[in-house]
């Protein structure tokens, strides 16, 4: 048997998961680890007690260590990826550090069953704003944002979009645009002009609530200016909802985009002839 200080030296190279196994091995080793117990058990215990901690302090847990931060974010993301909250089947990709954490969690899971802990209910209670109907998404945690607009001017409640997207746009993977407009040309040109601000976008849903489907004069149907489309390498999903717009504008828009978009969902398009213009 090695002297205790040598064991301590060896233990400092072990992962929290291994340390947990070590302390379970025999009373002598457990005694050596007595002091460090709170340190290495913290990442495992945090997910279990999250339901008991009040919201404001809970966010403090993100700032403690990297492990606690990714544990927190992971829990939130798995909640946001669940089918109840995310009916569109869009999934946030794990960052590398989160993938590592998940591996640890999987290893631990072989010994422990965390499945019955109901994070979903807890999160719905603590973060009511993370339900899909609300516009208050956090772009850092969820990589998702809902932008509403009135009379063609896009804004987020409390913040102007021109200050939001340049600062935080690169965080976004998923974007919902809810737009009230009666000018299709303006609508698309605005969207196009802001796409370069969201280089990592993978899913865009455009949900225009057209106040009045006004008849557009023929010379306006084709856009007068040519727009520079930013190259969005990773973009794959486009959702257009409730369109009852002029056919030609959409066709133009889709033709510009079709090289980039790999999946398209168009709901309530009134012109079936549109389909022949778009081959995915």
């Amino acid at each position: 048997m090695l002297p205790p200080e040598l064991w301590n030296h060896i233990f400092q190279y072990l992962s929290p998961e291994d340390l947990f196994s070590v302390s379970n091995t025999c009373p002598a080793w457990n005694e050596l680890l007595e002091d460090k117990k709170t340190t290495y058990l913290f990442p495992f215990v945090l997910p279990l007690i999250m339901g008991h901690v009040e919201r404001k302090t809970l966010f403090n847990c993100r700032s403690i260590t990297k492990a606690s931060k990714s544990g927190f974010d992971k829990t939130l993301q798995s909640f946001c990826n669940s089918d109840d909250v995310n009916p569109f089947g869009h999934h946030h990709e794990d960052s590398i550090s989160q993938r590592c954490l998940r591996e640890v969690a999987c290893k631990l899971k072989r010994h422990y069953d965390f499945s019955h802990v109901n994070f979903k209910e807890f999160l719905q209670k603590v973060f009511p704003q993370f339900s899909t109907t609300s516009s208050e998404f956090n772009p850092f945690l969820l990589r998702h944002m809902v932008l509403a607009s009135r009379s063609g001017d896009v804004y987020l409640p409390g913040h102007h979009v021109r200050s939001i997207l340049p600062k935080f746009g690169h965080h976004l993977v998923s974007l919902d645009l809810i737009i009230e407009t009666n000018s299709i040309d303006t609508l698309f040109s605005r969207i196009v002009s802001q796409l370069s601000l969201v280089p990592n976008l993978k899913r865009l849903a455009i949900n225009p609530s057209v106040l009045q489907a006004e008849t557009i004069p023929n010379h306006l149907a084709r856009p007068t200016t040519s727009y520079n489309f930013p190259k969005l390498e990773t973009w794959f999903t486009l959702m257009l909802k409730m369109f009852s717009l002029q056919e030609i504008s959409i066709v133009w828009f889709l033709q510009c985009l079709k090289r980039m978009v790999t999946s398209l969902l168009v709901l309530f398009v009134r012109r079936p002839s549109l389909q022949r213009h778009f081959c995915p």
Partner: peptide, 20 residues
């Protein structure tokens, strides 16, 4: 031990070191 504490207080209570 967590509710109502600052980040530093939580670190002290659980003997954690910031690795940021």
């Amino acid at each position: 031990k967590i509710t109502g504490r600052t980040v530093d207080e939580i670190r002290t209570a659980f003997k954690l070191k910031s690795d940021f």
